[in-house]
Design a protein around this nucleic acid. Structure first.
Lengths: 237, 237
DNA sequence: TATCCCTCTGGGGTAAACCCGGAAGGCAAT
DNA sequence: ATTGCCTTCCGGGTTTACCCCAGAGGGATA
């Protein structure tokens, strides 16, 4: 029994036919169309292996994985993602138990790679797509890894908030916010006003650009944050 | 004879099998792996119909279409895209001849939609994916459509440039840059400092956020702009 | 021709974003 | 406990981005 959760029909079909060819003895293949269905199906059917697309309506693949692993820690999880976004690796690291079994494959992976990953997870190993190896490296590097404080500030400026608005929202001084931003700029390697005379940057926008480029943040995540923000400010007033 | 240009093997195979099933009498199906190959193949084979993925290495689908249409104006073009990004519609509108024959389908289209689009273009009609209908509407709406000047400014702030840097680059006054930005903010509907007391925004970052959300700009386009920028500044000094 | 819109220009002001140094707190090491 | 290190926070300054006003030239439309 293998469960596939993906909102795109084409990807589901592709994966299903691939699994049917190579893993016919692992029982039937079930499908889910969003994160919530994936959790429901997983808790009911208790499959040993679940494929989860990261970007799904209602409930992201990460959160679905969290809920599934809470109830059934021995479930093997293979995440599917379109991009090697650092946001996701970052979140996933917090969710997966230290010795959990999981795989991470990009959607542009070859068929062989997917089969390999599936085989690995089924036999209790992990399989990480080579494309995100350096991303994981970066999340563990002191000089470039962002702290939670810096990450919060990053999300806020990416949404277009002012220092004052960020301060009010996070219960900080404006100075504290600026301090966070300052260290954020430093870690992203953005030159200040004095240095690097040939290229002038608006650090705030530059930080957003570079972070998006490196996959520290991405649009769909930001959209989630924005709706969350709108709800809280509505409740707050 | 039908030519398919896409850098993703999976998408090529999907499209190829789909075409073979439904359009077997249209001759063989040729493939290209990037934009440059697509142009070369098209000029050599002169196929009546070409599928072009927008996001390809070396040469984007848009530019490939431009070159192909320059040499063979009667070629039918069907663009493939992952997202309903306004940038592309914007560019495509300039490239395609007024009465040119083309289609635009998103990659999450159903098989039926692709067949429909193919049939339409082969018989001399256009086929536009419903998902981007409103985008096209927006590109023709006075109040929300961005002018070239505003678009240039948008790209620059998205890259993280300061007013001064933008002015120097576009040979303008800082005042002119600010003027462009002001009208840009207005069209995006971003409130200024005085108005809307509950929500404060850094207009600059907010503009980038909203534009990305609405598909006016996207990361891969910005990356292209940045390399172009780096080259020109290198040549300029 | 008259009208509209876009764009650039100018002066002059306010508030926000950024720079400097310094100091309180947690954490690890020895 | 002391020393170091890092993160986070604070205060006093400078620069940049944004605001309001008004006006003029170019281009398209009618």
């Amino acid at each position: 029994m293998i469960l596939i959760a993906d909102d795109e029909e084409r990807d589901r079909n592709w994966l299903k036919s691939l699994l049917k060819e190579n893993f016919a003895d692992n029982g039937p293949i079930e499908e889910a169309h969003d994160g919530q269905q994936a959790v429901d199906q997983a808790l009911k059917l208790k499959p040993p292996l679940v494929f989860l697309d990261i970007k799904m309506p209602h409930l992201s693949g990460i959160k679905a994985a969290e809920q599934i692993l809470n109830a059934l820690p021995n479930t093997g999880i293979i995440m599917l993602s379109n991009f090697s976004d650092e946001v996701y690796v970052r979140q996933l690291w917090k969710v997966v138990p230290p010795n959990g079994v999981f795989g991470y494959v990009l959607k542009n992976a070859s068929n062989e790679q997917v089969v390999e990953a599936t085989r690995a997870v089924l036999s209790g190993d992990c399989w990480i797509h080579p494309g995100i190896a350096r991303v994981i490296q970066r999340t563990q590097n002191r000089a470039t890894n962002l702290t939670t404080a810096e990450y919060e500030a990053l999300v806020c400026i990416a949404l277009g908030m002012t220092d004052h608005a960020i301060a009010k929202r996070l219960y900080l001084t404006e100075k504290a916010v600026q301090s966070r931003l300052k260290s954020l700029y430093a870690k992203l390697g953005i030159p200040g006003r004095g240095e690097s005379h040939d290229t002038e940057f608006n650090q705030r926008c530059r930080a957003v650009f570079l972070s998006t480029k490196r996959g520290l943040i991405n649009q769909s995540e930001l959209d989630d944050w924005e709706t969350k923000l709108a709800q809280e400010t509505k409740a707050g007033t």
